[in-house]
Protein backbone atom coordinates (compact mmCIF):
# COMPACT_ATOMS: atom_id res chain seq x y z
CA UNK A 1 0.00 0.00 0.00
CA UNK A 2 2.07 2.91 -1.16
CA UNK A 3 -0.10 5.89 -1.70
CA UNK A 4 2.18 8.49 -0.27
CA UNK A 5 0.75 11.96 0.03
CA UNK A 6 1.86 15.37 1.25
CA UNK A 7 0.02 14.65 4.50
CA UNK A 8 2.18 11.62 5.16
CA UNK A 9 5.32 13.55 4.27
CA UNK A 10 4.41 16.33 6.69
CA UNK A 11 3.54 13.99 9.57
CA UNK A 12 6.75 12.02 9.12
CA UNK A 13 8.82 15.19 8.97
CA UNK A 14 7.24 16.65 12.10
CA UNK A 15 7.43 13.33 13.95
CA UNK A 16 11.07 12.68 13.21
CA UNK A 17 12.03 16.32 13.73
CA UNK A 18 10.47 16.11 17.18
CA UNK A 19 12.44 12.94 17.90
CA UNK A 20 15.79 14.14 16.63
CA UNK A 21 16.07 17.93 17.07
CA UNK A 22 16.63 17.76 20.86
CA UNK A 23 19.42 15.25 20.40
CA UNK A 24 21.00 17.25 17.58
CA UNK A 25 20.99 20.42 19.69
CA UNK A 26 22.56 18.46 22.52
CA UNK A 27 25.34 17.23 20.25
CA UNK A 28 26.01 20.65 18.70
CA UNK A 29 26.32 22.34 22.07
CA UNK A 30 28.72 19.74 23.37
CA UNK A 31 31.24 21.43 21.06
CA UNK A 32 30.48 24.88 22.50
CA UNK A 33 33.35 26.92 23.84
CA UNK A 34 31.23 28.65 26.49
CA UNK A 35 30.27 27.29 29.87
CA UNK A 36 26.81 28.68 29.20
CA UNK A 37 25.20 25.84 27.36
CA UNK A 38 22.58 27.86 25.54
CA UNK A 39 24.82 30.54 24.04
CA UNK A 40 27.08 29.63 21.16
CA UNK A 41 30.61 30.93 21.62
CA UNK A 42 32.61 29.07 19.01
CA UNK A 43 33.75 25.52 18.35
CA UNK A 44 35.75 23.66 20.95
CA UNK A 45 36.38 20.12 22.14
CA UNK A 46 37.52 21.19 25.56
CA UNK A 47 34.55 19.61 27.37
CA UNK A 48 35.56 16.24 26.00
CA UNK A 49 39.03 16.80 27.42
CA UNK A 50 37.60 17.73 30.79
CA UNK A 51 35.31 14.76 30.74
CA UNK A 52 38.17 12.37 30.09
CA UNK A 53 40.13 13.96 32.92
CA UNK A 54 37.23 13.58 35.34
CA UNK A 55 38.03 10.46 37.33
CA UNK A 56 34.67 10.24 39.02
CA UNK A 57 33.01 9.86 35.63
CA UNK A 58 35.56 7.37 34.41
CA UNK A 59 35.15 5.29 37.58
CA UNK A 60 31.38 5.35 37.18
CA UNK A 61 31.69 4.34 33.53
CA UNK A 62 33.89 1.42 34.47
CA UNK A 63 31.45 0.23 37.16
CA UNK A 64 28.55 0.58 34.71
CA UNK A 65 30.35 -1.38 32.03
CA UNK A 66 31.25 -4.21 34.38
CA UNK A 67 27.71 -4.40 35.72
CA UNK A 68 26.27 -4.38 32.20
CA UNK A 69 28.54 -7.15 30.91
CA UNK A 70 27.94 -9.45 33.89
CA UNK A 71 24.23 -8.84 34.24
CA UNK A 72 23.44 -9.09 30.52
CA UNK A 73 25.38 -12.34 30.20
CA UNK A 74 23.64 -13.85 33.21
CA UNK A 75 20.31 -12.51 32.02
CA UNK A 76 20.83 -14.04 28.58
CA UNK A 77 21.50 -17.49 30.02
CA UNK A 78 18.58 -17.37 32.44
CA UNK A 79 16.23 -15.66 29.98
CA UNK A 80 16.97 -18.15 27.20
CA UNK A 81 16.38 -21.04 29.60
CA UNK A 82 13.12 -19.43 30.73
CA UNK A 83 11.98 -18.89 27.14
CA UNK A 84 12.77 -22.49 26.27
CA UNK A 85 10.81 -23.70 29.29
CA UNK A 86 7.85 -21.45 28.46
CA UNK A 87 7.63 -22.52 24.82
CA UNK A 88 8.69 -26.16 24.98
CA UNK A 89 7.86 -27.66 28.36
CA UNK A 90 4.19 -28.46 28.38
CA UNK A 91 2.66 -28.34 31.81
CA UNK A 92 4.64 -28.31 35.02
CA UNK A 93 3.97 -27.38 38.59
CA UNK A 94 3.54 -23.62 38.97
CA UNK A 95 3.68 -22.80 35.28
CA UNK A 96 1.21 -19.93 35.61
CA UNK A 97 3.23 -18.39 38.44
CA UNK A 98 6.38 -18.80 36.35
CA UNK A 99 5.02 -17.05 33.27
CA UNK A 100 3.52 -14.39 35.53
CA UNK A 101 6.93 -13.72 37.06
CA UNK A 102 8.45 -13.48 33.57
CA UNK A 103 5.97 -10.87 32.36
CA UNK A 104 5.35 -8.88 35.56
CA UNK A 105 8.75 -7.14 35.73
CA UNK A 106 8.14 -5.78 32.22
CA UNK A 107 5.20 -3.69 33.42
CA UNK A 108 6.30 -3.16 37.01
CA UNK A 109 7.20 0.48 37.74
CA UNK A 110 10.96 0.73 38.29
CA UNK A 111 10.50 2.42 41.64
CA UNK A 112 8.68 -0.63 42.97
CA UNK A 113 11.19 -3.14 41.58
CA UNK A 114 14.02 -1.08 43.01
CA UNK A 115 12.40 -0.62 46.40
CA UNK A 116 11.57 -4.30 46.79
CA UNK A 117 15.08 -5.42 45.86
CA UNK A 118 16.63 -2.96 48.28
CA UNK A 119 14.42 -4.25 51.08
CA UNK A 120 15.49 -7.80 50.22
CA UNK A 121 19.20 -6.96 50.22
CA UNK A 122 18.87 -5.24 53.59
CA UNK A 123 16.74 -8.09 54.90
CA UNK A 124 19.36 -10.72 54.13
CA UNK A 125 22.22 -8.44 55.10
CA UNK A 126 23.88 -8.35 51.69
CA UNK A 127 26.31 -5.47 51.40
CA UNK A 128 25.20 -3.21 48.58
CA UNK A 129 27.55 -2.55 45.69
CA UNK A 130 28.40 -3.93 42.28
CA UNK A 131 27.10 -7.40 43.17
CA UNK A 132 23.66 -6.18 44.21
CA UNK A 133 23.30 -4.06 41.06
CA UNK A 134 24.24 -7.07 38.95
CA UNK A 135 21.61 -9.17 40.75
CA UNK A 136 18.97 -6.48 40.30
CA UNK A 137 19.72 -5.86 36.62
CA UNK A 138 19.85 -9.56 35.84
CA UNK A 139 16.41 -10.02 37.34
CA UNK A 140 14.57 -7.50 35.22
CA UNK A 141 16.58 -7.87 32.04
CA UNK A 142 16.25 -11.66 31.96
CA UNK A 143 12.54 -11.07 31.45
CA UNK A 144 13.22 -8.92 28.39
CA UNK A 145 15.62 -11.54 27.03
CA UNK A 146 13.04 -14.23 27.58
CA UNK A 147 10.40 -12.26 25.68
CA UNK A 148 12.73 -11.71 22.72
CA UNK A 149 13.92 -15.32 22.62
CA UNK A 150 10.50 -16.87 23.16
CA UNK A 151 9.00 -14.90 20.29
CA UNK A 152 11.73 -16.38 18.09
CA UNK A 153 11.20 -19.88 19.50
CA UNK A 154 7.47 -19.64 18.88
CA UNK A 155 8.08 -19.45 15.13
CA UNK A 156 10.85 -22.05 15.22
CA UNK A 157 10.09 -25.07 13.03
CA UNK A 158 9.89 -27.84 15.59
CA UNK A 159 10.59 -30.49 12.97
CA UNK A 160 14.20 -29.26 12.87
CA UNK A 161 14.65 -30.46 16.45
CA UNK A 162 12.81 -33.67 15.66
CA UNK A 163 15.09 -34.22 12.68
CA UNK A 164 18.11 -33.85 14.96
CA UNK A 165 16.65 -36.41 17.40
CA UNK A 166 15.80 -38.67 14.49
CA UNK A 167 19.41 -38.51 13.30
CA UNK A 168 20.72 -39.62 16.68
CA UNK A 169 21.06 -36.50 18.85
CA UNK A 170 20.17 -36.48 22.52
CA UNK A 171 17.89 -33.56 23.36
CA UNK A 172 20.83 -31.60 24.81
CA UNK A 173 22.82 -32.16 21.61
CA UNK A 174 19.81 -31.15 19.53
CA UNK A 175 19.66 -27.86 21.43
CA UNK A 176 23.39 -27.20 21.14
CA UNK A 177 23.84 -28.23 17.49
CA UNK A 178 20.56 -27.15 15.93
CA UNK A 179 18.32 -24.93 18.04
CA UNK A 180 20.96 -22.60 19.49
CA UNK A 181 22.78 -21.81 16.22
CA UNK A 182 19.45 -21.01 14.56
CA UNK A 183 18.05 -18.80 17.32
CA UNK A 184 21.47 -17.20 17.90
CA UNK A 185 20.48 -13.83 16.35
CA UNK A 186 17.57 -13.55 18.80
CA UNK A 187 19.80 -14.53 21.72
CA UNK A 188 22.36 -11.93 20.66
CA UNK A 189 19.74 -9.20 20.36
CA UNK A 190 18.46 -10.28 23.76
CA UNK A 191 21.96 -9.80 25.15
CA UNK A 192 22.27 -6.39 23.51
CA UNK A 193 18.90 -5.35 24.90
CA UNK A 194 19.88 -6.49 28.39
CA UNK A 195 23.21 -4.69 28.03
CA UNK A 196 21.59 -1.38 27.04
CA UNK A 197 18.91 -1.68 29.72
CA UNK A 198 21.64 -2.12 32.29
CA UNK A 199 23.68 0.81 30.91
CA UNK A 200 20.60 3.05 30.98
CA UNK A 201 19.09 2.16 34.27
CA UNK A 202 18.97 4.86 36.90
CA UNK A 203 16.11 4.05 39.24
CA UNK A 204 16.77 0.40 40.07
CA UNK A 205 20.52 0.96 40.35
CA UNK A 206 19.92 3.87 42.75
CA UNK A 207 17.97 1.60 45.05
CA UNK A 208 20.21 -1.43 44.70
CA UNK A 209 23.57 0.23 45.15
CA UNK A 210 25.40 1.38 48.21
CA UNK A 211 28.05 4.03 48.74
CA UNK A 212 30.76 1.79 47.29
CA UNK A 213 29.50 1.73 43.72
CA UNK A 214 28.15 4.57 41.58
CA UNK A 215 27.00 3.94 38.03
CA UNK A 216 27.14 6.42 35.20
CA UNK A 217 23.37 7.14 35.14
CA UNK A 218 23.45 7.86 38.89
CA UNK A 219 26.37 10.19 38.32
CA UNK A 220 24.66 11.90 35.38
CA UNK A 221 21.41 12.25 37.30
CA UNK A 222 23.01 13.92 40.28
CA UNK A 223 24.91 16.25 37.93
CA UNK A 224 21.94 17.30 35.79
CA UNK A 225 19.66 17.86 38.74
CA UNK A 226 21.67 21.03 39.25
CA UNK A 227 21.08 22.08 35.64
CA UNK A 228 22.53 21.67 32.17
CA UNK A 229 26.27 21.18 31.98
CA UNK A 230 28.52 21.05 28.92
CA UNK A 231 30.43 18.06 30.30
CA UNK A 232 27.22 16.02 30.39
CA UNK A 233 26.52 17.16 26.83
CA UNK A 234 29.89 15.78 25.79
CA UNK A 235 29.23 12.51 27.60
CA UNK A 236 25.77 12.26 26.03
CA UNK A 237 27.24 12.87 22.59
CA UNK A 238 29.72 10.02 23.05
CA UNK A 239 26.94 7.67 24.17
CA UNK A 240 24.63 8.68 21.33
CA UNK A 241 27.47 8.24 18.84
CA UNK A 242 28.22 4.72 20.04
CA UNK A 243 24.57 3.69 19.86
CA UNK A 244 24.07 5.30 16.44
CA UNK A 245 27.11 3.62 14.94
CA UNK A 246 26.01 0.30 16.46
CA UNK A 247 22.41 0.47 15.26
CA UNK A 248 23.33 1.66 11.75
CA UNK A 249 25.98 -1.05 11.38
CA UNK A 250 23.59 -3.72 12.61
CA UNK A 251 20.80 -2.66 10.28
CA UNK A 252 23.15 -2.39 7.29
CA UNK A 253 24.56 -5.84 8.02
CA UNK A 254 21.14 -7.42 8.39
CA UNK A 255 19.92 -5.67 5.25
CA UNK A 256 22.95 -6.91 3.27
CA UNK A 257 22.40 -10.42 4.54
CA UNK A 258 18.72 -10.27 3.59
CA UNK A 259 19.46 -8.99 0.10
CA UNK A 260 22.15 -11.63 -0.45
CA UNK A 261 19.87 -14.42 0.75
CA UNK A 262 17.07 -13.23 -1.50
CA UNK A 263 19.38 -13.13 -4.49
CA UNK A 264 20.68 -16.59 -3.75
CA UNK A 265 17.18 -17.96 -3.35
CA UNK A 266 16.19 -16.36 -6.63
CA UNK A 267 19.21 -17.89 -8.37
CA UNK A 268 18.50 -21.28 -6.82
CA UNK A 269 14.89 -21.22 -7.96
CA UNK A 270 15.97 -20.45 -11.53
CA UNK A 271 18.66 -23.10 -11.79
Amino acid sequence: MSRFSWFNAVSLTIGFAFLYIPMIILIIFSFNESKLVTVWAGFSTKWYGELLANEAFLDAAWVTLRVAVFSSTLATILGTAAAYVLIRSGRFFGRTLFSGMIYAPLVMPEVITGLSLLLLFIGIGLERGVLTIVLAHTTFSMCYVSVVVSSRLATFDKSLEEAALDLGCSSAQAFRLVTLPIIAPAVISGWLLAFTLSLDDLVIASFATGPSATTLPIKIFSAVRLGVSPEINALSTIMIAIVTVGVITASLLSKRKLVREREEEFMAARS
Binding site: E162, D166, L167, C169, V178, P181, I182
Partner: peptide, 18 residues
Protein backbone atom coordinates in the same frame (compact mmCIF):
# COMPACT_ATOMS: atom_id res chain seq x y z
CA UNK B 1 13.79 -41.63 18.60
CA UNK B 2 17.56 -41.12 18.64
CA UNK B 3 18.14 -44.81 19.38
CA UNK B 4 15.90 -46.24 16.64
CA UNK B 5 17.18 -47.65 13.37
CA UNK B 6 14.44 -45.60 11.74
CA UNK B 7 14.93 -42.32 9.92
CA UNK B 8 12.41 -39.84 8.73
CA UNK B 9 12.14 -37.44 5.86
CA UNK B 10 10.09 -34.50 7.08
CA UNK B 11 7.33 -32.80 5.18
CA UNK B 12 9.06 -29.42 5.57
CA UNK B 13 12.35 -31.27 4.85
CA UNK B 14 13.68 -29.79 8.14
CA UNK B 15 17.09 -29.08 6.60
CA UNK B 16 19.37 -27.36 9.08
CA UNK B 17 19.65 -23.84 7.63
CA UNK B 18 23.00 -23.08 9.27
Amino acid sequence: PNKRAVNMMFQSYALFPH
